[in-house]
Every structure is written in C-alpha cells, then in structure tokens.
C-alpha cells in the first residue's frame, strides 16, 4: 500500500472556504471580522457623540427662521444648505439625530426589558398563563409600529411620547417570544436538571444559568430593534403623525423637503435620508456582529 500521497496529487486548497485556507489567511480573516465589529462600534459611538455634542458645537439655532436665506444650497455657512424657512439644515439634522436616537433607544430599552420579563415568566410558568399571555402578545403582534403609532397619535395627540410608546409596545412581543422559546429550550436542557439535583434554588438557576444564556439573544434583537425604531420614527414623521414640526425630526424633514426635490433643492431631503440610512445600517451591523460574536460555536471565537 502507498501510505503517502505525492504532494502534487493533492488538490490545491480552494480560494473559498475560510476554514480550510492556510493559517495566516485564516487569522487575517478573523481579524477583519473582529475589526468589522470594531468599525461598527466606532461608527455608533461617533453617531452618539454627534447627537450629544453636535448641536451645541455647531451653535446654530435649528428653529431660527430667516426667510431671506430660504432654500440656499450647501455652502460654507450652511454645509447642508437651508430649508424653505431659511433654517440651517445641518443644525436641524444634528438635533434630528438626537431625537431619533433618544426616542429609539428609550423605546427599545423599554420594550426589551418588558419583553424579556414577560418571556422569561411565561416560559418558566407555562400552562394557562403562558397560553393567555401568548395570545395577547400575538394580538399586539398584528399591529405594525406604524399603525399603532397612528392609533396612539389620534388617541393621545402626536408627539415623542406617542411615537415612543407605539414602538415600545409593538416591540414587546418580539422580545417576549425570543426569550420564551430560549427559556423553554433551556428548561429541558440537562444542565438545568443538574443544577436542581445539586440543590440550587430556582432563583439561582434563573440568574446564573438561564438569564446569561438569554441576554445575548436579547442584545442582538435590541440592536436590530433600534434600526426598526429609527425607521418607524421617520415613517411616522413622514406621515405627519410623529414628532410635530417645528421640532426637527428626520422623517418630517424629508416630507417638508419632498416638494422641493422636483425644483432642485435636493439637500433638504437627502441629508436626513442619509442619516436614517447610516443609523439603520450601523445598528443592523451591530446586531449581526453581536450574533456572530455571542455564538459559542461561532467562527470568530477562538
């Protein structure tokens, strides 16, 4: 028998399939992957900084009307141009970022906390409680954030509160469902039984073994949730049911600028649109990066 294979007979390592390429390539690939998550994190921190310190640094009043300066294209004085009332678009953009982030993050935080609690509770208790709460959540799930936002805007008057509430309420079922199914699968895992055999109280099992396994999934869902929240805020603003003018809000700014797009004043709509695009992309990328990173069998983990 021939125990060795001639080197030439071996097929060359394929260019695709990172797992099978030579070690240096693999390491480089892994580093890029990690760096990818780092780039996203840097982007998000930059966005946060922009929203927090941007408005005072730029110093222009986003609400100051100056009709003589109306509809000016981008220039040194107004890098993003001015709108139909002569307000500085950059100042409005920066405050708009602040509002999108604040409302989005608050809403997502609220819905993830409430959703996680409901999900963990129903998953652990099961039975009738689980069935009843589950159907109720399914009912909430039937409302898209936009419809809920419209209903709340009519009921409580449009504003940041109704927008945030709509996003938070419609988000709850998603977290509850994720956490519930995770808890259900964990509950039947042997290492949970092993804890009971060792004499661990339920509280200990929940905090030490169940929650840590669940939180990763919630974090992923929440970062994707921010993207949807930003879109929902802008969508409601675009429809005029969100945060009301003159408060600068990206969706509302796009609506206001829409009529001027045809006549060539593109800057009023394009800049808030790019803002939405950037924020949504970053949170999506964060969510996906987190998911890869938290997966114990993930390729990035070594």
């Amino acid at each position: 028998m021939s125990a060795t294979v001639p080197e030439a007979a071996r097929p060359a390592p394929g260019p695709r399939g990172g797992g099978r390429s030579p070690a240096p390539v693999r390491r480089a690939w892994a580093a890029v992957g990690e760096a990818g998550l780092r780039v996203v994190a840097i982007g998000l921190v930059a966005f946060l900084a922009l929203a927090l310190v941007g408005p005072p640094l730029w110093g222009k009043d986003p609400l100051a009307v100056a009709l003589p300066d109306a509809l000016q294209p981008p220039s040194a004085a107004h890098p993003f141009g001015t709108d139909e009332l002569g307000r500085d678009v950059l100042a409005r953009f920066l405050v708009g970022a602040r509002i999108s982030l604040a409302v989005g993050v608050c809403a997502v935080f609220a819905s993830s906390v409430v959703g996680t609690l409901i999900g963990a509770f129903t998953g652990l208790v099961g039975g009738v409680v689980d069935a009843v709460i589950g159907r109720a959540l399914d009912g909430v799930l039937a409302f898209p954030a936009l419809i809920m936002g419209m209903a709340l805007a009519v009921a409580m008057g449009p504003g940041p509160l109704s927008v945030g509430l709509a996003i938070a309420v419609t988000g709850v079922p998603w977290y509850a469902r994720t956490v519930r199914s995770e808890v259900l699968s964990l509950r039947s895992r042997e290492f949970i039984d092993a804890q009971r055999v060792l004499g661990a109280p339920t509280g200990h099992i929940l905090t030490r073994h169940v929650l840590p396994s669940v939180l990763g999934g919630v974090a992923v869902q929440a970062s994707l949730g921010i993207a949807y929240a930003v879109l929902a805020i802008a969508g409601l603003g675009f429809l005029g049911l969100g945060i009301q003018p003159p408060t600068p809000e990206w969706g509302g700014m796009i609506t206001a600028g829409r009529t001027y797009l045809i006549s060539g004043q593109w800057w009023m709509s394009i800049f808030p649109g790019l803002g939405i695009l950037a924020l949504v992309t970053l949170s999506m990328a964060l969510g996906e990066g987190l998911r890869d990173h938290l997966d114990p069998h993930g390729k990035l983990r070594r």
């Binding site: 895992r189 092993a194 055999v197």
Partner: peptide
C-alpha cells in the same frame, strides 16, 4: 446525586 448520560448536555457550556 445523579450523573447524567451526556456530560456535554449536563455541564453549563459557558
């Protein structure tokens, strides 16, 4: 005490 069949499943992976 109990020792399970599958030690992979009965030890907390993290």
């Amino acid at each position: 005490q109990l020792v399970f069949q599958d030690p992979r499943a009965s030890l907390d992976p993290r």
